[in-house]
């Protein structure tokens, strides 16, 4: 039995994430926690999160989780989801600019209007719903986290800001929303995605299942 910590810093719907992980790892121990010691002792870590970047960073500081996250992203399988991806980058444009954890070099930017698709139809912001996740041009497109998941599988998104990584070698998948955006990043033992695997039905559960088995 392994211990999987879901980091709770007070931002967003952790029940969905923990329930989905329990669903794919019924024999493991899933701990929703803000306790740094428990996080450090876990075998693998999931960092979800929703809301505004400034609030999330403030919550991470308030819970004294910044150093522990930086530490565990170097040492064991780490899965960032949605805001849990964005806070890994260097800086976010949200809330007039927020310094983030700088685990993966890059910036977080807002979709700017007018946004249109290839058929010149207007796209709304937030990007909300099911978009295909494409790995053709992604350097990490063969990452073990994608095992058993078809290229262009649709996942559920809900975001107004998107990641622009410095290093294309970190990109594990792209999606199109007005332009091509990096929607999954991977580097060493870190994997992080913009979409919500815990809300993406069977394909999302498969990604979580892969994480539970991935050895970083």
């Amino acid at each position: 039995m392994q211990r999987i910590a879901v980091i709770d810093y007070g931002m967003g719907n952790l029940r969905s994430v923990s329930k989905a992980v329990e669903h794919v790892a019924p024999n493991d121990s899933v701990l929703v926690t803000s306790n740094a010691d428990i996080i450090k002792e876990a075998d693998r870590i999931i960092c979800p999160g929703q809301g505004a970047a400034a609030d999330c960073m403030k919550a991470l500081h308030d819970h004294q989780l910044v150093s522990v996250i930086k530490e565990v992203t170097q040492s064991r399988p780490f899965f960032g989801i949605c805001m849990g991806l964005q806070v890994l980058l260097t800086r976010s444009d949200e809330n007039a600019g927020v310094d983030c954890l700088d685990v993966l070099p890059g910036e977080v930017k807002r979709f700017s209007a007018p946004l249109t698709n290839s058929a010149n139809q207007r796209l709304k912001v937030p990007h909300m719903g099911w978009s295909p996740v494409n790995r053709d041009k992604a350097a990490q497109g063969e990452h073990p986290m994608w095992a058993g998941i078809d290229n262009n599988t649709r996942f559920y998104f809900a975001h107004s800001y998107y990641c622009v990584p410095v290093d294309n070698q970190h990109v594990a998948a792209y999606a199109d929303y007005g332009h091509s955006i990096a929607v999954a990043l991977a580097h060493k033992n870190v994997f992080a995605c913009q979409f919500h695997p815990e809300k993406s039905s069977a394909s999302g559960l498969k990604l979580l299942e892969n994480f539970v088995r991935w050895n970083g």
Binding site: S16, A20, H23, Y156, E198, K199
Partner: peptide, 27 residues
């Protein structure tokens, strides 16, 4: 939310920020 892993919206009788939080915390 423990068994169905697609987005779930809940409405009806939501009056306060506390109501919103309670529903989100429930899943």
């Amino acid at each position: 939310a423990s068994e169905v892993f697609i987005p779930l919206t809940v409405g009806g009788g939501v009056r306060t920020v506390a109501d919103v939080r309670n529903l989100l915390n429930a899943g």
